[in-house]
Each structure stands twice: as structure tokens, then as C-alpha cells.
Amino acid sequence: MTRSTRRTHRTLRAAGAGAALLLALTACSSASDTGSSASPQVSGTVTVFAAASLEESFTKLGTQFERQYPGTKVTFSFGGSDSLAASITGGAPADVFAAASPKTMKIVTDAGGTSGTPTTFVRNQLEIATLPGNPDKISSLKDLTGSGLKAVLCDESVPCGAAAKKALDASKLELTPVSYEQDVKGALTKVELKEADAAVVYKTDVRAAGDKVTGVDFPESADAINDYPIALLKDAPNAEAAQAFIDLVKSADGQKVLTEAGFLTP
């Protein structure tokens, strides 16, 4: 926490940083208050910006939230974490940000956009998505480097690509894919449509794709597990309800939905 505060100090001008810090601290304490008491004030619309890989589980949690707090409505904007971070720092009216990597969350915290420190709520592991039934008998990352096999990776600039690169580097493998996709769903689609033989994606994406792909665990994925941070935003139009949603995500119920989708608990 102190490091991130110091960083904020460096990047922002002194006055702005002071104000942001003050706001962050007050919001932090008030946030924990609302968290402990199941306050009846929770109402209205909560706007959640979440990484694309969270779409299935967060949609489910949104319905659960609306049932738990009648009169509330959760609206989601799912997308690449980087684009979401850019919209938030650009002033998009969001309450909660759930990112697919600490790096993308840092874009928002560095701009003083979060209220309090982001916390890791789930982790995601990489998996190889192959054609249904794994006809090419892929069992490790090394198998993807074989010639004649069309493999797809995410671009290094997006979290899934950075994680894949980390895993490849850790096992000293050189992999030339046919394409560096702009996001994880793009990579998965290429295998779903059978245009590529394999893609390195998240476990959760393989799970969500059902029987259109077969997932293959690979040992190197242990070297690249992605933390997913969630944070209440400083300019949240509906901070009470937003905090209640974050509490739900972190609760045992929420974690159950997320692990069912293939996420790992932090």
C-alpha cells in the first residue's frame, strides 16, 4: 500500500495526490463500514467494468446481486482490461473495476482512479485449447512448437499474451504462432472455428467454450498465473451498492460461482 501511495505521489502533482490520498483513505474506512453491516441503503444502478474473461461468472453474480438487493440493477461493460482502464481514466462513469491483470489495474490506481487498494479476488491459469478431442495429441507447451501445427497466442500487450510469454520464457521455448490475437476470445475463436489447431488461453475460457474445444493442462502454466484485482472507483456514482457488489464477489457464494467457471481462489 505504501509503495503504491508513493508512486501516486510521484506521478501526480502534490496537491492532486494529497486530495486523492485523503479521498482514498476516507473511502477505505467508509467502505469497510458498509461491508460489515448489510445496509438497507443499497439501491440503484451499479456499473461494473470487468475483464472479458469474467463475463459468464459476473453476469451470474449480477443476477444474484439483484435478487439479494431488490431495487438494484447491475450493468456490465465487459472488454479488454486495457481498454476498460483507458475508459475509466478517461472519465467513464463506472463504480467497480475488475481487471485481468495487476498491470491494467495499475493504470487506474496510478491515475488516482481507485478508492482504496485493489484486492486480488481470483486467479486464472493458462491452458491449451485444442480442437475437440485433441486430435493432434498435444500434451505440453513444447508440442505447440512443432512445425505444421497452427498455434495462436494472444499479443504480448494483453494479459493472456504476457502470461503465455512468461510460461514460454520460463521453459525456454521458442514458439512462432500463426497469429498474435488482440484478446483471449479472439484466440479462442480461431480454435472454435477450427482455423487454428491450438491456442494458449485461460482455463476459464476453455470451460466457457464447452465442447467446442478440449482443454489441455500444461505444467509450464504454473509459472504464469494471473491475479485478478478488483477495486471500488473513486468517482463511483453509487459507492454503497458498488461496495456491496465487491463484497458479494469476495464472499463464499461469489467465490463458488467463480471457481465453478474455472478460476482459482487467491
Binding site: S179, Y180, E181, G186
Partner: peptide
């Protein structure tokens, strides 16, 4: 382009 031809 990115959907049909990918990005390399």
C-alpha cells in the same frame, strides 16, 4: 482483417 487474417 484481424478476425480473418490474424495478426502477425
Amino acid at each position: 482483417t484481424i478476425t480473418f487474417a490474424g495478426n502477425f
